[in-house]
Write a protein that binds this DNA or RNA. Structure first.
Lengths: 194, 194
DNA sequence: GTCTATACGAAGATAGAC
DNA sequence: GTCTATCTTCGTATAGAC
């Protein structure tokens, strides 16, 4: 990796993490510089498009980060175990930031700008995640159209629970919602088998 | 209502609506002034605590606003019909802002400030909503502990779907998720009856 | 690739007049 | 209750040196 890409990548990774906590409009260049240790003077060298380019890249990186975990978890062919692992991943993220972190991609979707590259990246990201999940469910025997709506429901349920967790500053909402969603998943896969 | 309260209330209502679109950190005093038509010079008269006092009041008002609709819908004693009406309420909110609005209370929960009155208001609000729903489910015959987790799942699912709707700038995610959640609700109430 | 200096605007907040 | 003026801080962005 070239030095350009190293520095740029450090900034993107830090911006993604900050975005989980502070959202797009709450994450300033100065915060990213501080967190990443990247040099102040190189911001507009790496991100000629300015702040919006950085937040879009951060959102894309968040998509990729979760997408990779999803791939790893789903590769083993057991959707239920993958779901459990996915929930555990989210719990680690949240715990690491004392319940004040959510999803960087959701943050991208909530970018206040009326036209936003971050929101576009979030849209693509959610579609990608949805497809990964739906494909895995279909492979496990689920009806394709049912798999699509279930994938969407799982993602929505988790994203919503992350907001409640933040409000409560406690893991309980995610635990309870995850339990419900897991049973929904079991139901779907049992129905598929019969 | 005194003039003080009239002006203050106009500001709070406008701030709540802006918060749905732009979040807490994206909603400035100047935006609220413009949207509400309230006089510039009276901000710190009505909100001595400044911006954080306004956003907390806006979040509380969002809690109340949705809470009132929930009360109306649940008063008829049919949780399924209430659910349908609740979804319709959200669709109206979203449609009115061309898919770029979400939940003002979720926005309060996502306030970037490490210690936040808005987040505290969101926490209380979610608990209040959860209790209203859970009580209605219990009244319809559901087991109390099951009702609690279902209420949480419904709220989370809707909150998450609102984020996906914003990302897609399309109602599809909410429609599909609502369909799934509705069936979950039917299942619960049928089980309660048997 | 990175630095400093600088310009600019936006936003929060306070003081004192009316 | 509301106004204007003012202060300050912060964040984005550009220019030009190294």
């Amino acid at each position: 990796m070239t030095k350009q890409n190293q520095t740029r990548q450090k900034m993107v990774a830090s911006a993604m993490k900050l975005q989980r906590m502070r959202g797009v409009s709450g994450t300033a260049f100065s915060d990213v510089i501080k967190a990443s240790g990247a040099p102040r003077g190189s911001i507009y060298y790496h991100f000629p498009g300015g702040r919006s380019e950085l937040s879009a890249a951060a959102t894309e990186y968040g998509v990729e980060w979760i997408g990779n975990r999803l791939d790893d978890l789903l590769a083993k062919g057991d959707p239920i175990a993958a779901f459990d692992g996915f929930i555990e991943t989210w719990k680690e993220i949240v715990r690491d930031e004392d319940y004040l972190a959510g999803c960087a991609v959701a943050a991208g979707a909530l970018d206040p700008e009326p036209v936003s590259e971050s929101r576009a990246a979030a849209r693509e990201g959610f579609r990608t995640w949805e497809k990964k999940l739906a494909d895995a469910l279909t492979a496990a025997g689920s009806d394709p159209s049912s798999a699509a709506s279930l994938a969407l429901t799982l993602i929505s349920g988790i994203e919503g629970a992350l907001i409640l967790v933040r409000a409560e500053e406690d893991m309980r909402p995610l635990d309870l919602v995850a339990g419900r969603l897991r049973r929904l998943l079991e139901l779907e896969l049992n129905a598929a088998r019969s």
